[in-house]
């Protein structure tokens, strides 16, 4: 699936988008898997309360299933308007 990062999450991880092959079943599982890969993920995902997630472009939470998902995006709380 494609994993996207926005705002300071993108800056900490260093790429806006990457292809990730995973067997993770939920967003939380995917986060744990990424954190175990490299320190930059550990840093970016150190405080999940400071992050929001969208699965296939719909806002959801970290318990959400990602089975069959095409796109998961991580970003800080939004500041529109």
């Amino acid at each position: 699936m494609d994993v996207l990062y926005f705002a300071w999450v993108r800056e900490r991880i260093g790429v806006p988008k990457e292809r990730v092959e995973t067997s993770a079943k939920t967003v939380a599982d995917l986060v744990e898997e990424l954190k175990s890969r490299e320190e930059r993920y550990e840093v970016a995902f150190s405080d999940l309360s400071a992050l929001r997630v969208a699965v296939d472009q719909d806002l959801t939470d970290f318990d959400a299933s990602i089975e069959g998902a095409r796109e998961v995006a991580f970003f800080p709380p939004m500041t529109g308007g």
Partner: peptide, 11 residues
């Protein structure tokens, strides 16, 4: 809702 539910980030 635009403030906190639309995917924009200000720098």
């Amino acid at each position: 809702y635009l403030k906190s539910r639309a995917p924009f980030w200000k720098k």
